[in-house]
Design a binder for these strands. Structure first.
Lengths: 230, 230
DNA sequence: CGCTGTGAAGATTTTCACAGCG
DNA sequence: CGCTGTGAAAATCTTCACAGCG
């Protein structure tokens, strides 16, 4: 290896940037679908709902993939972001808890256009086990370990009631799964090295309520001072 | 200003703190359910999955509700956080898009124990309109404006396919709704003063994939340098 | 000349560490 | 003495503003 290898980056993309890359990716895919070949930071930022300085700074962490005076080549940037996010390989996902939410997740076809494959659906309810959902047989939760092993599951999705979530999480971890997406309204306890992300409806509603209340409080009274109603 | 009025706070709770208050609230409710009357910052922080310094700093923005040498009175703190979040009043919620996800949301009983009331379910599909979901009749999307007015809807939840989301959002805004929770994978365009929060499955998966890839990359190779596998 | 990439400034968030109240 | 509340330091994130490449 004499010449400069593609050296994509010197490891260390800020977390805030990582959280936005999927948004950029989706915006780029929309642009591509509309036949756009090239886009400026301004244009892409608009489509992604951020300002252009932030977009440029974010992309600068991946490398220098734009052309001055022109902008970014849509297809190339899609590839670079996908690669950075790890979407050029396939991740095997298991969903536990096949209620309405689990079904919604299972049927949610385009997981950001490729990168994820739903490998198994699991549930504890005998009435649900055996059903076919999204072309997959729902298996009993008891086979979790076996399924993780045989399907090479690397991401576990928990869509169970709150009471069962910690147990399922522990079994995932025990079975070697180190990425967990939790929809149950509980704080999961997992060892270091396991990555848990949480999606929680009622938290989001409560945050909305907070801002709504603040808007209502200050309405008309507070705009004379520079009160922000973000 | 001679006497000190109860003066709960001088407006201006950091956004990061607001986002954590619902988590504390839930942890407190769990503690209360278990009969705990008092908890230290350490104890509550553990239950909420944050460190105690952060917890104390967060609570300090609400006021001085702890007792030195003792901790926090669970019930009192629940009340204070609820009030701050605006959960002492009821917020009327309308859900648009009654697919699996919409149903899951509609049936999601305890919205953080009170504070939110699902006032209406709306859908565009004639086969879905008229169904009863979670004891509510699904109404046609055409009645959105009428429903917002008559039910006093202040929070709109969008659980439609991506293609319909912007249209629904615009109608919500037009009808006077200023808080929107969006589950559709698109960036919504709304005027200033409207608060949109987004919940997006595939973004969460992609963030997990990023970290999983990083862990895989560096496995065993990178731990000699201080590589973080957070 | 237009637009990217980026130092530097500014803002926000987290963590530290301890004074001081109960 | 234990634990809260908080200034101050450190870390992270955002925005500015412009040098300089294509």
């Amino acid at each position: 290896m004499t010449s400069r290898p593609p050296r994509p980056r010197e490891r260390g993309i800020p977390e805030a940037t990582v959280a936005r890359l999927p948004v950029y990716l989706r915006a780029l895919q929309a642009l591509q679908g509309r036949g756009t070949a090239t886009v400026s930071s301004e244009g892409l930022a608009g489509a992604a709902g951020v300002n252009s300085a932030k977009l440029r700074k974010d992309l600068s962490h991946l490398g220098s993939y734009g052309t001055r005076g022109v902008g970014y080549e849509v297809e190339y940037l899609i590839y670079q972001i996908s690669r950075e996010l790890g979407l050029t390989q396939d991740w095997s996902v298991a969903i536990v808890g096949i209620g309405n939410l689990g079904r919604a997740l299972a049927n949610y076809g385009g997981f950001g256009t490729r990168g994820f494959r739903i490998a198994a659906l699991l549930d504890a309810d005998p009435d649900v086990v055996g059903l076919t959902v999204a072309s997959l047989d729902v298996r009993h939760i008891d086979s979790l370990e076996e399924v993780v092993r045989s399907k090479g599951v690397s991401i576990g999705v928990i869509a169970t009631p709150a009471g069962s979530a910690q147990g399922v999480a522990s079994r995932f971890v025990e079975a070697g799964v180190t990425s967990i997406l939790n929809f149950a309204p509980v704080v999961l306890n997992v060892p270091d090295g396991v990555d848990v992300r949480k999606v929680d409806l009622s938290i989001e509603l409560q945050i909305l309520a907070f801002h709504a209340q603040r808007r209502a409080d200050g309405d008309g009274q507070a705009e004379r001072m520079g009160l922000e109603v973000t």
